[in-house]
Design a protein around this nucleic acid. Structure first.
Lengths: 348, 348
DNA sequence: CTGCCGACTGAAAACGTTTTAACTTCCCCT
DNA sequence: AGGGGAAGTTAAAACGTTTTCAGTCGGCAG
């Protein structure tokens, strides 16, 4: 039953009584072949359960249609949605999608990009905010230049291009606008003492959200000195810990803007553990509107960032501009989703 | 700046003043090469920013170290965790991991497996319960036979092998035991009228959980007639809808066993919307212990299925048994995680 | 009848690497 | 001094496709 190795096109050709060249043409459809010959070849291929060797094909042809998406971790709901968007858009076009996880380690990111170069990926999408230091800039410059040299494209989602001249495309959400809007929502409800929980200095995405938060405060006439940013970074654990500590230190605030929904999840938990109620005692808003945000306790008011659409857009724009080469920056809009975690300040 | 095509090993060899063969050996390290020559080649490669062409390498060599993991959707927290486990274990060994999403469509599953055969994946992991009909059996038999013929391995996670003779490895959780345990937990708390929400007849994973549920009832002397299984399938939306309808029809139950945590999330929401409290009026348990289960309202008592470990185990076992060929079935254990969604029946 | 064009086909080159087999050197042993 | 390796190196074959180039054949216009 199991022929030793894989069936090759040679055996198909033999069985169909044609040359390798004709078999190839019939199978790949690159060149017209009389229908009789063609069906004979196809039947032979079916009978032998022939599958073409993608490596051989990629070696001689124009390479393989493959897109790579690189995220910190697949289990983050936001990244998962982005990856799903990329996967879906790629599948729609018959492209293969590879996802890599770095765990936030630049070393693994470099290894993975290297691997993708070897594999001949034509599109590499790096997702997620990052601290923009010199190491980052030179790393990305190298990716962009190297990928460009072999005709591939680099897309940065939620992280900046180190230099506008660099052949990388940037597709991201307008973090500052989203954060300004949701902070404005709290301010409009009457809050004045609002904490931003989850800053990550140097991380461009979080810095933009902090900037939006400060801008909203300024717009509503809150003194800049009343702003308070807790730089605890992202993740549920970080939010839980930082919120717990903050509550031990002070209760001089009525609302919390979380860096993202996972931080908000931790914060909600910490607030409950401290014996306070949301939203009666403290209002909380998140960022990203992950799928389970409406199952939090209470359901979370947050900013909807259509993550899947971000992934799709990255692929779509990169492939559309494929000829254009070069860079460019595309901003995607966001909007507030109002649920039960916000009330007017001043108790029940 | 952009040299036209990719740098090949020929140019590296030329610059280092050696033959292609020597360059290849120095770079791949398959054959000892004097340190002087070796460093000369490596330097040339570094200077030219050479990356090997994985296609050419795979074409002549033993193929590429690549594992493919196929799930319904990446955004399901459970599948994401499994995929992360596979990715991590693969990365640890320097293998490439490709994830495919089928959306539950057998057609897309077949296409993806076909693609993986073309790409030369050496390990294909199919994840997730499935209805075991004739179409499924013949599909999987074909995968197994075809992959085996080209020296690749097939692993089934949470779905059955159609035939013990078939060269496929099964790695899964003991769904029946887990479900029996968590249902037993409710029974021990005093519940007698317990609904199973989220059956999916024909789906082997869910059927096993239903069987565990019934077994637990029988063990505790609850008449079989008091069992009630709502076949609404999985997903938050399904749970929300089905629970809402059930509550309109009857309130003759004190506890709910959900098919998985997402169904539980929907159920919790529906119960709250009906004006009931969890756990005072209704107790709820889930399945899988997804990362956000403790942020539900209330925190969810559920069965912890170490999903990442499932992914890791699939890779580990498959690679360890690589020589052994053939099949085999491995069961992974689970345990209950007690949180706040269960109380004794009979109101606050 | 001759010449030409088009449709179809096949032999062979090419893709970039690894590996085999053969060829040098050079050293050591007798 | 001659022979036997070992160590280092290289030319060439091989991997499975696609594509180019050249060929064969039949038909049709002149």
């Amino acid at each position: 039953m199991t022929g030793k190795g894989r069936v090759t096109i040679r055996e198909v050709a033999e069985r169909a009584g044609v040359s390798i060249a004709t078999a190839s043409r019939a199978l790949s459809g690159n060149h017209p072949v009389p229908v009789a010959t063609r069906s004979r070849v196809l039947r032979a291929a079916r009978e032998l359960d022939y599958v073409a060797n993608a490596h051989a094909r990629a070696l001689v042809g124009a390479g393989r249609k493959m897109v790579a998406v690189v995220v910190r971790q697949v289990t983050s709901p936001f990244y998962a949605q982005v990856a799903e968007g990329v996967e879906a858009e790629a599948a729609d076009r018959g492209w293969l999608c590879v996802v890599g996880a770095t765990g936030g380690d630049p070393q693994r990111e470099m290894e993975f990009v290297q691997l993708m170069r070897e594999e001949g990926a034509r599109l590499v999408i790096l997702v997620g905010g990052v601290v923009e230091d010199d190491a980052y800039r030179s790393r990305v410059a190298h990716y962009a230049q190297a990928l460009d040299a072999s005709g591939a494209r680099l897309v940065l989602c939620g992280r900046p291009a180190p230099d506008p001249e660099i052949p990388a495309l940037v597709v991201e959400f307008d973090n500052e606008a989203g954060s300004r809007a949701v902070t404005g929502h709290l301010l409009s409800a009457g809050h004045r003492r609002i904490v931003f929980l989850g800053g990550l200095p140097g991380n461009t995405a979080l810095d933009a959200r902090v900037a939006g938060y400060r801008a909203a405060l300024a717009e509503h006439g809150v003194p800049a000195g009343d702003a308070r940013v807790v730089d605890c970074g992202l993740g549920r654990g970080a939010g839980l810990r930082a919120m717990g500590e903050l509550l031990k230190e002070t209760r001089e605030f009525t609302a919390v803007v979380a860096g993202d929904d996972m931080v908000a999840a931790g914060a909600l938990r910490a607030i409950a553990e401290a014996g306070l109620r949301v939203p009666e005692d403290v209002s909380v808003v998140g960022y990203n509107d992950i799928p389970l945000a409406e199952d939090f306790n209470p359901p979370l008011t947050t900013v909807r960032t259509p993550a899947e659409e971000l992934g799709r857009a990255a692929v779509r724009i990169a492939l559309r501009d494929a000829e254009g080469g070069g860079g460019g920056r595309h901003l995607l809009g966001t909007h507030i989703v109002v649920r039960g975690s916000v009330a007017a300040p001043g108790g029940s």
